[in-house]
């Protein structure tokens, strides 16, 4: 599904190298987790994959089902099936959540040469999906993320994911700022979307999210590289001993 090879990235504005040769391969239907200390480059990886400005790729490639992502505009990546659930979902005053969702869904359908959803059909689908995420009609009417609580913002991200039906989902610290109940609700939403044709990359500091979204593979990232890869037990090891042991072990 997603294949990242020797990815090197630096900040555009300053001469600061963030990623120093990331290699990662995620198969269809797999859930991978990336853990790592602050500043290891986890969030940068998610931004570079989704096409945010301000980063310069100096080497390497990132392919989604064989298509080179790094040469595409952010909207093209989305249409190709990539989705990033933001760590800090953006507030957009003046744009209704519903308008936003419908514009996004139809823009992607159009880009893929599919017919746009009618207002009626769209409403039906969105109501149904919102209900399972406990998102009420009021939240759909309000401007995008404006006045939403932390939990509401994250649930809204998952709703977008459910509506857009991407094949490769990146969750950037989706657990940050959530209490246990909110985290469970978000995890349930994610788990409901798991399927053989859809892969996930879960970026997190803590093991606790991985109790709810069970990964197949866990990677440890430090200083811009993936330094260790293992099964779910690797996350437990980090939880117990912190990152220091692994960092020392790898040197």
């Amino acid at each position: 599904m997603l294949e990242i090879k020797n990815l090197h990235v630096k900040l555009e504005e300053e001469d600061k190298v963030i990623l120093r040769g990331v290699d990662l391969k995620i198969g269809a239907g797999e859930v991978h987790a990336i853990m790592g200390p602050n500043g290891s480059g986890k969030s940068t990886l998610s931004y570079v994959l989704s096409g945010r400005d301000g980063y310069e790729v100096t080497e390497g490639s990132a392919k989604l089902e064989g298509q080179e992502l790094l040469e595409m505009e952010p909207e093209e990546r989305a249409a190709a099936g990539l989705f990033l659930a933001f760590q800090y979902p953006v507030e957009i005053p003046g744009v209704g959540n519903m308008t936003f969702l419908r514009t996004a869904v139809n823009a992607q359908r159009k880009a893929r040469g599919e017919e746009e959803l009618s207002a009626g059909d769209f409403l039906k689908v969105v109501r149904e999906k919102a209900k399972t995420l406990k998102i009420d009609a009021e939240m759909l009417k309000r401007p995008v993320n404006v006045g939403f609580s932390g939990g509401e913002k994250k649930r809204n991200e998952i709703l977008q994911m459910a509506m857009l039906e991407p094949r490769m989902c990146i969750l950037d610290e989706t657990d940050s700022g959530l209490d246990v109940d909110a985290m469970k609700l978000v995890a349930e939403g994610v788990n409901a979307l798991r399927s053989a044709g859809r892969s996930f990359l879960v970026i997190t500091h803590y093991q606790r999210l991985l109790d709810h979204i069970k990964p197949d593979v866990v990677h440890i990232m430090a200083a811009g590289r993936i330094i260790k890869t293992g099964g779910p037990e690797l996350a437990l090891e980090v939880e117990t001993n912190g990152y220091a042991d692994i960092l020392n072990e790898v040197g």
Partner: peptide, 14 residues
């Protein structure tokens, strides 16, 4: 720009 990127990342052309 952040809002612009957010919209683009959801597939809305720039």
């Amino acid at each position: 720009e952040t809002a612009l990127f957010y919209l683009q990342s959801r597939g809305v052309p720039r």
